[in-house]
Design a binder for these strands. Sequence first.
DNA 1: AACGCTATGTCAGTCTATGACACTTTGCAA
DNA 2: TTGCAAAGTGTCATAGACTGACATAGCGTT
Lengths: 209, 209
Amino acid sequence: MKAVAAPRRERKKQQTRDALIQAALALFIAKGYEQTAVREVTDAVDVSERTFFRYFANKEDLALSLARDHTDALMRELAARPLAEPPLVALRNALHAAVEGLTAAGGALTGDSAYLSIMKLIEATPSLMAAHLRYMHERDDEIARALAEREGVDPVTDLRPRCVAAVFSGLFISANREWRYAGGTVEAMLATFDACADQVAGALSGHWT
Amino acid sequence: MKAVAAPRRERKKQQTRDALIQAALALFIAKGYEQTAVREVTDAVDVSERTFFRYFANKEDLALSLARDHTDALMRELAARPLAEPPLVALRNALHAAVEGLTAAGGALTGDSAYLSIMKLIEATPSLMAAHLRYMHERDDEIARALAEREGVDPVTDLRPRCVAAVFSGLFISANREWRYAGGTVEAMLATFDACADQVAGALSGHWT
DNA sequence: AACGCTATGTCAGTCTATGACACTTTGCAA
DNA sequence: TTGCAAAGTGTCATAGACTGACATAGCGTT
């Protein structure tokens, strides 16, 4: 009668989903991902374990759900970059915009923003790290397609989109290692990425002497 | 009284380990990684399930054991490249040498070499893919150190080693996708890698028009 | 020939994940 | 309003990957 958009049922679902994510992340950060049983999460939200697996394919899926939001933001920002920017510049700026947008919206559980907390959790947990890497590399194709469209080249014939997308992933993953060092900051990560991006073209050709 | 190197006990261990690997890979290739229970592997070799986990930390560990050999070969070949070769060239040549060395030594279970079989298995199995990516990216540091030493730069101060190592991983992972397409060949993979390596420096600066 | 260390087997139990089936709630319509 | 069908949940049973504890068998030594 009132809400056109959200039937009550949908709202409750979203509510349960959010509650699961929030409870899980709090526990993961407090006592570690591996050390937190799914049961503990569902108990905190008062749903059955079975329900958990109806919302998330598995434990990793939940832990990475926020990381996915971050990647989504990156893709949106990339699409929004002016066409005047060449590929690597556009990627660099999109990354900055995405990260800054996310750190602003921080769920302050600890001193860190939600983004920082998740990234540190992932970086500190081998199984999450693995899943996250797979997810990121799966996005390579999407990035390649976006770049090809920007530059007006054929994404099948021309290897450059794929190539630059792969390089971007590599550099981003490398920069993400900054989280491992205690007190890793968003600024340090972005600074590392930028420095690499600036030097990469030169470093790839010839000797360094 | 005779063998200085290998006491009988050690030989038996190696033998069991090899048997487990071989039986497992045969089963994985025949019916898929996820569809093969550890129990089936241990039954084939006639050891207890518990023993399996004393040899391998987990199922993935076994599946990736061969992939690890391949990465080891890459590192050895890299160390063997003449210093006259600049970083990216040395990496490229090391990759060629490593891959060719491995495809030669093929355990012919199917028509593919052991190398090809494993890579296709990994590429087709999400959980293995994730674990493999993590493993490869963990090697980035090692590659960076090797490059720094080759070029005589400081691996801490200078970002270029880390940077080029990251790019190499990205490109190699990208090239590895070739395995996904039915009948992917070693040649196709290497050709893709080479083409990317040739274009990458140019593609990173400016527009592509 | 007896002893100690090491590899292996057995067993019990935890945790993730999934299928089957019953029950409750919600949305919609007669 | 009543009532039905669909969607969401709970419960139960089960498979499969691990892990710790403890007993046993086997090699390697003295």
